[in-house]
């Protein structure tokens, strides 16, 4: 499984007074079972990029390949593209509309034209995969659930389509700390059990560092940085120039290193930072 983006360009309002280049030659590739984190300031082109990956927007030029098949040449069927690439928007709970949770999750599979048994099967699996009790919840109205539960039902609605690539736009936005942790572990569970590529956008740098194999940084419609989380977050100054931050642990360690030059840090998480601090304390105590 793979998704490949080649030299994607997109312009809003071409030839009109409000013309803006939203994507300016974006290329990247994600391979089998990898998790790609996407960061960028609001308006950097992230959302525009995501909408190209499942055919909601058509590029001005450039191509997107999913499993080697081009989805931007106009030949691929839309239903086929949407089956391959699942897109979960920000606040996906606002898309729920059916009377029961099970019916809502079945909406996507139904649109794929699957058989009744296949749909029922997928609905059950998807609801369980997002960490909800299928029997207890299947007949309740999606509007009576808590915020975190609604969000998981909405995500179940997309994974029931069995995509090869799952895209999540700010999956944890607006959740309290415990619901936040639940959604992150749910994403891991989906990734492990379905073995699919995950692309997710977040402003939460701790989540990006924690979850992603690769990170791309977008600014003004371009990819300006790419690499492993540790490499990307070592460019603190460049990121802050784009209105972005490093991980909270790294931000704290950067401030400490500025005062204590002797303490070098490449920590991403609080655990790593704590280890560096302990090591520094031991080292200085022995002198």
């Amino acid at each position: 499984m793979s998704i490949e983006v080649k030299d994607l360009r997109y312009v809003y309002n071409p030839g009109m007074p409000g013309e803006t280049v939203a994507l300016d030659g974006v290329s990247f590739e994600v391979r089998d079972g990898e998790i790609l984190g996407v960061i960028g300031h609001t308006g950097s082109g992230k959302s525009t990029l995501l909408q190209h990956l499942n055919g909601l927007l058509k590029p001005a030029s450039g191509d997107v390949y999913v499993d080697g098949q081009c989805i931007t040449d106009g030949k691929a069927k839309l239903v086929e593209i949407r089956r391959k690439v699942g897109l979960v928007f920000q606040y996906p709970e606002y898309q729920l509309f059916e009377e029961t949770v099970a019916k809502d999750v079945a909406f996507g599979p139904k649109n794929l034209g699957l058989s009744e048994e296949e749909i029922a099967d997928r609905v059950k699996n998807a609801i369980e995969l997002v960490g909800l009790d299928f029997e207890a919840i299947k007949d309740s109205s999606p509007f009576e659930l808590s915020g975190g539960q609604k969000r998981r039902v909405a995500i179940a609605g997309v994974i029931a389509m069995h995509p090869s690539v799952l895209i999540l736009d700010e999956p944890t936005a607006g959740l309290d700390p415990s619901a936040h942790a639940d959604v992150l572990s749910m994403i891991r569970r989906i990734h492990e059990s379905m073995g699919i590529i995950i692309i997710f956008v977040s402003h939460n740098m701790a989540d990006i560092a924690d979850m992603s194999d690769w990170v791309i940084v977008m600014d003004h419609g371009r990819i300006v940085l790419r690499g492993k989380p540790r490499e990307v977050f070592s460019h603190g100054e460049m990121l802050s120039g784009m209105g972005l931050a490093v991980t909270p642990a790294r931000a704290i360690m950067n401030r400490i290193s500025a005062e204590i030059p002797d303490l070098k840090s490449d920590a991403l998480t609080i655990d790593e930072a704590a280890a560096e601090l302990r090591e520094y304390i031991n080292r200085t105590k022995n002198i």
Binding site: R82, F89, F107, N111, L112, M161
Partner: peptide
């Protein structure tokens, strides 16, 4: 509209 299209709505 976009969210439902992403779920294959036609």
């Amino acid at each position: 509209i976009k969210a439902q299209q992403a779920r294959g709505a036609d």
